[in-house]
Design a protein around this nucleic acid. Structure first.
Length: 467
DNA sequence: TCCCCTTTCCT
DNA sequence: GGAAAGGGG
């Protein structure tokens, strides 16, 4: 029996059969074998959290089974760093007489360099790389302003995005057909990463799709209003799956269009997904962002406070500001934090403690199971007023006001700061010095009003002299 | 995806 | 003395 040459699909953050353009097109071209690289040292350098890696390991185990049902074997190769991958892939392609490599692009700088180097190396042995943009609806660099460059402001970007995103583009790619059996065995998925709440985060495609459907169906009319309240489960909670690619962005939007008729919900969730695209387009078009630099070059000269003990109190959720502490403890305990509280805690670190946003960015990555470089970096630069379309420096979150507004009954605080569970609704966000002492909860580590004032002075002085 | 101070107008 | 509205950081 004569065989047509094998096609290799390299899986990374696209662990799904559905809506996977690289897989879809590879399978159309011929028989497919998959490969996934475990890169523990590289992941550690990127601050990927044990929880996120644990989720990837479990999803990979499940995904390998799903691939097997299509007779697609999945090989696993362990390396320390990305730089070893071109060599390993060269060997692999030689061994299996492969002439085509298929994958979906990733946009941070290290990933892009890895992929470009791989493409170059494989070209030397006549292997052609076929690259797709499966992680976004519109490819980075394709949504541009009138002068032909990337938007620096979200709203015009999102307007242009909406005009470009026609139904044809939004259609998800179908899963590959079952192919005839190959003489290659799938590898066992070794244990890697750490623990996460497996009771909350299932990894089967069925459970992930059901999460998506339940969210879109249940949230009619309530999402826009309730998404900002951390005590209420009104958000999609799909971010970990989007991050590791267990669900595709087209699938999400397709389900949204098909199922939900509520205009406000539809518009609002789509806006959130466009924010995700905005940040992906930014990192793809601006290498500074992957190099620890600010989107606004002038902001690279800001002087941040170096204060290890203050930083540690923030990390540990012991600032004495209940809403901040609840958020930081939710992050550590569950690997996830409600979006509103991410903004509150980030503003607290950057605008009230005046500590470098990059320390916060790293801490979030080290704990978030949905830790995503583009979204996390974008969010932190936004909060610190150093990024694209970021909050103006004088827009400083008041943790007390935010708490009263978005956690009016204190239920969120009560859940994660048990010391305060006996305090009534009115006082829980601002417990008195006396009750803090008796309950073993820290007093506020700073005076909000004076730190706010100081930040305003520092920034206004900085911008005056920088000009 | 803000906060705060001031003024104004009502009770 | 509180709600609403406006301006500025």
């Amino acid at each position: 029996m004569s065989h047509s040459p094998l096609h290799l699909i390299w899986f990374r953050n696209d662990l799904r059969l559905n809506d996977n353009p690289a897989l879809f097109n590879a399978a159309k071209a011929g028989s497919v074998v998959g490969v996934f690289f475990i890169c523990e040292k590289q992941w550690q350098e990127h601050n990927d959290s044990p929880a996120k890696l644990g989720l990837i390991a479990d999803r990979l185990r499940e995904f390998s089974k799903e691939l097997k049902q299509k007779n697609i074997p999945l090989k696993i190769i362990a390396v320390d760093y990305f730089t070893e991958i071109p060599g390993k892939l060269t060997q692999f392609c030689k061994k299996h007489a492969i002439h085509d490599l298929w994958f979906n692009n990733e946009y941070p700088l290290n990933e892009k360099k890895r992929d470009d180097q791989t493409e170059q190396e494989l070209k030397k042995i006549s292997v052609t790389s076929h690259r797709f943009n499966g992680d976004v609806i519109l490819p980075p660099g394709s949504v541009l302003n009138n002068s032909g460059s990337m938007f620096q402001v979200f709203t015009p970007f999102s307007n242009a995005w909406r005009l470009r995103a026609n139904p044809e583009i939004l259609t998800a790619f179908k899963p590959p057909r079952k192919q005839s059996e190959l003489a290659i065995e799938s590898d066992e998925i070794p244990q890697f990463g750490g623990e996460y709440r497996t009771d909350l985060w299932q990894v089967t495609t069925k459970s992930i799709h059901s999460r998506l459907h339940k969210f879109v169906e249940r949230s009619e009319q309530s999402y826009k209003e309730l998404r900002d309240f951390p005590a209420i489960n009104a958000t999609s909670t799909l971010s970990p799956y989007l991050t590791i690619g267990a669900v595709g962005i087209r699938e999400c939007i397709q389900v949204l269009i098909e199922t939900n008729s509520d205009e406000a919900f539809h518009r609002q969730w789509l806006t959130e997904l466009i924010w995700r695209e905005f940040y992906r387009h930014l990192i793809a078009t601006n290498p500074r962002l992957s190099q620890g630099l600010c989107f606004k070059p002038v902001a690279d000269n800001l002087q941040w406070q170096v204060n290890q003990s203050n930083f540690q109190r923030w990390c540990d959720g012991k600032t004495g500001f209940p809403i901040v502490d609840a958020g930081m403890r939710q992050l550590k305990q569950t690997g996830w934090m409600h979006n509103r509280v991410r903004m509150i805690t980030a503003a607290f670190l950057t605008k009230l403690l005046r500590i470098d946003w990059r320390l916060g960015e790293a801490h979030f990555m080290q704990h978030l199971m949905d830790g995503d470089f583009a979204s996390n970096n974008g969010g932190w630069q936004w909060s610190a007023s150093v990024g694209a379309d970021s909050v103006p420096y004088f827009r400083i979150f008041n943790p007390y006001r935010q708490a009263e507004k978005f956690d009016p009954q204190g239920n969120y605080v009560r859940k994660f700061v048990p010391e305060l569970s006996s305090i009534n609704d009115k006082k829980i966000h601002q417990p008195s010095t006396l009750s803090c002492e008796t309950l073993g909860y820290p007093n506020p580590m700073i005076d909000y009003a004076s730190e706010r004032k100081k930040t305003l002075e520092i920034w206004s002085e900085f911008l005056n002299t920088a000009r």
